[in-house]
Each structure stands twice: as C-alpha cells, then as structure tokens.
Nucleic acid binder design. Structure first.
Lengths: 197, 197
DNA sequence: AAATATAATTAGGCTTACCTAACTATTAAA
DNA sequence: TTTAATAGTTAGGTAAGCCTAATTATATTT
C-alpha cells in the first residue's frame, strides 16, 4: 500500500538528498519541505523504517533503501512525464506545469503514463531540463554543470534550471532565457558573483 | 473545503438519484454503492447536511441541495470530459476509460479541464453517450430512450449505454455494437424479452 | 565549561474516515 | 396481529495524519 502521503514523503527525501550520498536529510528539513511539523514527520519516518523503505537515525538522517528509492524515482518519473506532457501537448507554460503535475503524479495507472510518455516521444529530459528516470529507476546521463561554476568567456547551453519557483521561471522568461538557449558569460561581477550573459 | 471523499459522496447521491426527483436514496444504498458500511455513510451525511449540500431523513433519503448538485455535476463534468479525452485523444478503449477517469476527476485544476475540453472539441456527450454538464451544471438535451422500451421493427441509433461495467462493454464490442451504430429491432422474444437486432 | 540556542523526541490531543456490535424502528410474512 | 426480517441508528473503537507543549539531546557561543 503506497499511499499518496507515503509517496510524497519518499519523494521529499529523494529530492532533499539531491544525489549526494553524504547529504544528511533531517526530520526538520523534511518538515519544512512538506510544510508539516517535525513530530508528524518523525511518526511517518518510523512507519517508513518499519516498511524498510528508509533507514533513519538522528545522526545520519533519513536515507532511502533500494525499494524506497524505486518508489521515489517512480513518482519523479511520473511527475516529469506529466510536466513534459502538459508543456508540449497541452501548451501550458513552463511555470504552470509543476503544480498540476504535483497532483497528476499520484494518479495510479501505468498504462496512462506509458501512453502519454509515448505521445511526447519518450524524451530523456523534461521541460526544466531534469532527467526522466526510466521504469527501472535509472536516470539518463547528462553533463550539466551549474552556471555559477562557469568562467568568463564560457560558451554554454541552458540544459535546465535548478530553481523551479514561478517567480524565478517568469524572471527567466522576462530575460528571454529559455531551454537550449546558448549563452556566453561576458562578465562576472566579483562583488556579488552576478553575471552578464 | 470539498474533499475528495465529499465529492464522491455527492456524486454517488447524484448518480443514484438518476434524474428521478422521487427516487429515495437510502444510506444503505449509498453504502453499497461506495462499498462502505451504513454507519460510515450516516456520519458523512450528517456533515453534508450541516454544510447544506443535502437534506436527509429516513423517509425521503438523501437529496442534493442546489449547491450540492452543483458540486456533484462538476465532478460528473470532469469525469466525462476525462473519459472522452482518454478515449479520443489517448486511444484508450471504451471499457478502460472509466477507472482512470475516476481518479483524474479529482485533480483540481479548472485550467486543465478547460484545456482538454477544448482539445476534444467541446462535445455535449461522452463516449458512453452520457451528457457532459456545462460549467454552470446544466445538462445538454437529448432524446435517449432505453432499447428495452422499443418495439419490433424499430429503427434506432445507439446513443449511449446505461451499464458501464467492463464485462458488458466488452460484450458489446464482441457483438460489434458501438456508439452511433444503427440498429433494427427484428424480433423480440416474449419469453425473456431478449431481442434480435 | 557554563549558558544558550537549536534540533530531536515524547506525550497527549484532535479530526476524518472507517469499522463492529448492539439496539430500535419499519416493513413484510405467517 | 404477532413474528421475523430488514433498514436505520447509536455507541464505542481503530488507524492515519496532523497538531501543541514539554522534555531531552546536541551544538554553539561566550
């Protein structure tokens, strides 16, 4: 029985881990992320531990087990497939898709996901540039590096964004920065690390 | 706060009423329909009464108020729009759409419903031939009559089915009876009222 | 190291949505 | 019309998910 909540807790742990094996995901951090209080999280973590979806202790935080990661990646997969579908097929804007996908990802029908994945042409990345895990929970490879690590004169291509808030995405649209756009780092301001692109 | 459950109870009452003003929808009937026990239903009915979505007493059963009916029809609207979308755009079969639509109908995004309603061409009827209520909760007119009321020699067109189970729909497919097909009632067996079409 | 701040945990409470068992009212049958 | 069957209701219980308040651990300052 993977419930809607359980899926969300596992997804939260996955997202907060952020691919860093050593990242400690604390109960408080999860609580802030899901906008609930720490005791609520602790309670749920105990259940997830019992079901062997995670391990948890106060020093190492919460870590996904193999089966837990599988569930989390499946939700991430659904989320990103829906985002892509909404963006490409239903013409939603880059900044609108997240919230709707947040609901659609919990609709339980592999057939439906297969179908829409097919329609969008089985891509490896979603409209934010994030990788779409395959059914087995494997992520496609990519060589994304954060723009903040680039040096002056660097020519690069926008592969994705790591901040998904509407404000930020609208800001990018205003700046006319979109996916797959080419950028040149013209100048880096040493004062606040802002860049001229 | 219309929760997912509340929506389902209101929809159940709507469906069991079946357009018949005098139909008495008892708690037990709702319980069977939703596969829960009568006390569970009673409890919820009390809440729905307090919220003025329904009236209820043991003799008249549950009846939707105007606002209750509005909510119920909105869910029905979503359900039928999704069914049509799944059938026409995603090429699901007539018998598969119901179960998936049952989940999708609770996704809360008017924008999304508007979009897919647009894509399917704003039809008045779903693939089962059932009418799609408009945003204001008005049902489009149609002159459907049950086939069982037809007489010998009657030439008719399949506008819809009143039984939605997969077994029945698959049976129809096997008989090569589909929506908008023309039928002629050739013979009516007086023994069991079965027909040769 | 003591004092303070922050994080983790425990205890106990609330609401929703379900249940069973027991009781009462209504309806149908003998 | 009394009896039996069925429907409606009440009482009381459980589990999930949330909460606040209080307590205990750990970290950070001074």
């Amino acid at each position: 029985m993977k419930t809607y909540r359980e899926e969300n807790y596992l997804k939260a742990i996955y997202q907060l881990t952020n691919d860093d094996k050593n990242k400690i995901v604390s109960a408080t951090e999860i609580a802030n992320w899901l906008e609930v209080k720490p005791p609520t999280v602790l309670e749920k973590l105990a259940i997830l531990v019992k079901k062997e979806y995670i391990t948890y202790n106060k020093f190492d935080g919460a870590k996904l087990s193999l089966s837990g990661k599988e569930i989390a990646l499946n939700i991430v997969r659904r989320h990103r497939i829906w985002e892509t579908y909404l963006y490409k097929e239903l013409k939603f804007s880059w900044s609108e898709v997240h919230e709707i996908a947040e609901q659609l990802e919990h609709v339980n029908s592999d057939q439906l996901i297969d179908k829409i994945y097919d329609v969008i042409g089985k891509p490896d990345f979603d409209p934010h540039g994030d990788p779409i895990p395959n059914k087995q929970g494997k992520l496609p490879k990519s060589d994304r590096r954060p723009l903040s690590k680039s040096i002056k004169g660097c020519r690069c291509v926008v592969l994705g964004v790591s901040e998904h808030s509407e404000v930020f995405l609208n800001y990018l649209t205003e700046l006319k920065i979109g996916l797959n756009d080419k950028l040149i780092v013209e100048q880096i301001n040493t004062y606040d690390d802002s860049m001229k692109l």
